[in-house]
């Protein structure tokens, strides 16, 4: 494992810790999109099916379990926790799942490395992850008052895939048979989706102002 990959994984892990902390400490999930969290749950379940079939490393297994458990915990809190669920911006979080899920499913059926159930679901998870942040970004645009932790959460989540791109470049140069065009294109799309957010996040940080996204 190279330094970019590790930095990417740690950024991803940190984003989830920030989100868990925010919700748990403030007893509020204001500004957080349940749709995005549920899409991530689908992404992790589809991608990590190999937990049952293929052991890669202890690190790999532990991280996968952390991502699954933390995402389902957040969904449970937002849906069922008696204090937290009333803070969910239900009326604002209106993005439709099917607009993201269906195209990704069709694309995974058409464009994959191998036409098997496991491989198609894995590819589907790669495509879906690329766009799963969209409901969250739409919700942030509608939220006038974005708190710091929510801003940091989205920033860390966006940074993680950008670091993965560096990891892919590194692996491409150092590993003889590392060719993952579908993943690379998806990762680039995923990072591009954040560029607007990154711009306003860095601007607000430099000017020491509260983050807000123009509608």
């Amino acid at each position: 494992m190279n330094v970019f990959r590790l930095a990417g994984d740690m950024t991803h892990l940190l984003s989830i810790i920030v989100l868990l902390l925010k919700i748990n400490a403030t007893r509020s999930c204001r500004g957080i999109s349940l749709k995005t969290q549920e899409l991530y749950a689908v992404v992790f379940v589809c991608r990590y099916l190999d937990l049952f079939t293929n052991f890669i490393s202890l690190y790999n297994t532990v991280m996968k379990i952390i991502f699954l458990v933390s995402t389902f915990t957040i969904i449970y809190w937002m849906r069922f926790h008696k204090v937290i669920r009333v803070t969910y911006d239900r009326e604002q979080d209106t993005f439709r799942y099917q607009f993201l899920v269906l195209p990704c499913l069709v694309l995974a059926l058409l464009l994959n490395n191998e036409f098997t159930a496991m491989e198609v679901l894995w590819t589907f998870s790669i495509y879906l992850e690329a766009v799963a942040i969209l409901p969250q970004l739409v919700l942030l645009q509608r939220t006038n008052n974005i708190d710091n932790l929510t801003g940091n959460y989205v920033f860390l989540l966006g940074s993680y895939r950008a670091l993965y791109i560096l990891n892919w470049v590194y692996r491409f140069m150092t590993e003889k048979h590392y060719r993952q065009y579908l993943v690379w294109i998806s990762g680039i799309v995923q990072t591009i989706i954040y560029i607007d957010f990154f711009y306003y996040y860095i601007k607000s940080w430099r000017n020491n102002e509260k983050l807000s996204l123009p509608a």
């Binding site: 991803h12 890669i56 991280m63 990891n167 048979h177 590392y178 993952q180």
Partner: peptide
């Protein structure tokens, strides 16, 4: 040697 599947990533 086979092509790396990338499935060792998260």
């Amino acid at each position: 040697e086979e092509e790396s599947s990338g499935h060792d990533e998260l």
